[in-house]
Design a protein around this nucleic acid. Structure first.
Length: 253
DNA sequence: TCCAATGTTTCGCC
DNA sequence: GGGCGAAACATTGG
């Protein structure tokens, strides 16, 4: 077992699930001290025992008796287990026997109510309660939205980030400028399926540090299907970086 | 040195 | 008060 464990990652849903798995060793452990730049009430954490760790989309949830700490890694967040770095942690927790857990560049909030009141688990693409039916229902209410914005909507596809968005659209041959309401229901069903398939593949590839190796369109220059130039644009309301092939991805209109 | 990037929240303006 | 967009947060590599 390594003494130091350092984790940096791409903070889309699968990476949060990996974090949860790596942090299992802290379940049942009591916090000795809590500090950091986060505005949460640190005293509240002292002597409290972590009773569980959950995830919702891109949220990592440290559960205590009566409240939960929500950690969001934003764009550059990272966590160090039993190690630290020369930066001010957002949240630093210490435990018995010199164990520690440090979070950097994260948005941290306290949830004071039961999680079921905050989270719609049918929206979390990595949760066992994920429901494509539920996602489709939500999509129907906003047919004018571009599919790129829908996929990044955390109330519909919690956990999906920009990489997953790009890869899933390419794999299902849906052009990113298509509007949700113009895409045929069967194609939407296929898209929902592919989101789950790719997200879990992302998880496995990420675990063996081979995620980028399997990108088919994200940051690519040439379409692997027909050799066309992969275009890059900042699409949708979100204006997020999007890679696509005009030749093989169908514009539904 | 500057810019862009796997993301979200907050603030100010109309 | 809603909608919108800019700014803020902060790190790292190209």
């Amino acid at each position: 077992m390594p003494i130091y464990q350092i984790y940096q990652f791409m903070p889309e849903g699968p990476s949060i699930v990996i974090a949860k798995e790596e942090l299992q060793q802290f379940i049942g452990k009591r916090i000795l001290t809590a500090s950091g730049s986060s505005k949460i009430e640190m005293n509240r954490l002292k002597n409290k025992k972590i009773i569980g760790i959950k995830t919702f989309g891109k949220h990592l949830l440290l559960c205590f008796d009566g409240f939960t700490i929500r950690i969001h890694f934003l764009m550059f967040g990272k966590y160090f287990i039993n190690s630290s770095k020369p930066l001010k942690p957002t949240l630093a927790l210490t435990f018995a026997r010199g164990k520690e857990l440090n979070f950097y560049t994260s948005a941290i909030t306290m949830i004071e109510v039961p999680l079921e009141e905050v989270y719609d688990w049918t929206a979390d693409v990595m949760n066992e309660n994920w429901s494509a039916t539920s996602a489709k229902k939500k999509m129907k209410k906003m047919p004018e939205r571009m599919i790129v914005d829908i996929l990044l909507d955390q109330e519909i596809f919690a956990g999906v980030g920009n990489i997953i968005k790009n890869e899933v659209l390419y794999r299902t041959k849906i052009h990113p400028t298509s509007l949700g309401g113009d895409i045929p229901p069967k194609k939407i069903t296929e898209l929902c399926k592919e989101v789950i398939i790719y997200t879990f593949q992302f998880l496995e590839w990420k675990k063996i540090s081979q995620l980028a190796k399997y990108w088919e369109v994200y940051t690519k220059k040439k379409c692997k299907r027909d050799g066309s130039v992969i275009k890059k644009g900042y699409l949708g309301k979100g204006q997020r970086r999007t890679y696509f092939c005009d030749a093989c991805q169908v514009v539904y209109a």
